[in-house]
Design a protein around this nucleic acid. Structure first.
Length: 271
DNA sequence: CTCCGATCCTGATGGC
DNA sequence: TGCCATCAGGATCGGA
């Protein structure tokens, strides 16, 4: 479900719900874990700590307290919502705050992750330590893409989705950014020119920013924490549009599986 | 080391 | 209507 724009909107939604300043009463776990076991012991030490800020790093949400970070990854189908009382199938975690606010983590496919660690361990944390550049930060440039890709024989599509190189770009935005940059997704990453890398960096940033503004993309079940759907899916140029005419040139859009993920492009515009 | 397929899990969808 | 295969916004693991 969630790539960078969706996670960014979940973060905004959680802040809108009034999470900042809230003191933890307890964290209730409704099963043993998701992709990994829940940090039940650490959750006890979190009690009494207050949420100072909520950050996004890559596709991870970070709830910052005085001494800890609580890390949440949404996997494919994870979502946070304010608990209005009804218990849904696939609700797995409930954060109880002293004010009475409760946040519920819901995740049918259970690919999500929850972790808690000391603030001093931020750079050592197993989920965060190998992450690449944030595409919305200054360090992410055409030169960064160019230099990091020189020895890569895999496709530019898989390069874009590799979180050790660039974070936050998933299957939708990889196809959209490559269309924007007029680069065929099957191209070998190491053979992208310096000019193309520059174009691609700008496209990744532009697509992600536009998607954030649109509230993310809702294809099936994505909702931000206010229950709102995103609308960027109405602006897709290629994703999920195989067989339809290219908006730029009218050529029939193609699709095929690249490293296990369905990929969409215009065979005429993208080279 | 790099690359890619298999894998985790549930639910929606489409073909027969 | 029912059954089965396929696919889905992610990321890790292990074999080649």
């Amino acid at each position: 479900m969630p790539e960078l724009p969706e996670v960014e909107n979940v973060k905004i939604g959680l802040i809108d719900l009034g999470s900042i300043g809230q003191a933890f009463a307890k964290i209730e776990f409704l099963r043993a874990g998701l992709r990994t076991p829940f940090p039940k012991k650490a959750a006890k030490t979190l009690e009494g700590q207050s949420v100072r800020a909520i950050h996004r790093r890559a596709k991870y949400l970070l709830f910052e307290t005085e001494e800890f970070y609580l890390l949440s990854h949404l996997g494919m189908t994870g979502s946070w919502r304010s608990d209005e009382g009804e218990r849904l199938k696939h609700d797995h975690v409930i954060m109880h705050f002293r004010s009475g606010l409760r946040l519920v983590f819901h995740d049918p496919r259970r690919f999500g992750v929850l972790d808690i660690f000391k603030k001093s361990e931020l750079t050592k944390n197993k989920w965060l330590k190998n992450l690449g550049a944030e595409p919305l930060e200054e360090t992410f440039t055409g030169e960064y893409i160019f230099s990091k890709s020189r020895k890569v024989t895999a496709s530019i599509k898989s390069f874009l989705m590799d979180q050790r190189r660039i974070v936050g770009v998933g299957n939708i935005y990889a196809s959209e950014a490559l269309f924007c940059a007029k680069i065929k997704p099957t191209r070998q990453a190491g053979k992208i020119t310096r000019d193309e890398a520059g174009l691609l960096a700008g496209c990744v940033r532009e697509i992600l920013l536009r998607a954030i503004k649109a509230g993310g993309s809702t294809i099936r079940d994505y909702r931000n924490s206010n229950g709102d759907e995103g609308s960027f899916q109405t602006q897709f140029m290629v994703y999920d549009r195989a067989g339809e005419p290219c908006v730029r040139c009218g050529t029939k859009l193609k699709s095929k599986t690249i490293v296990g993920r369905n990929t969409f492009w215009c065979p005429q515009c993208q080279r």
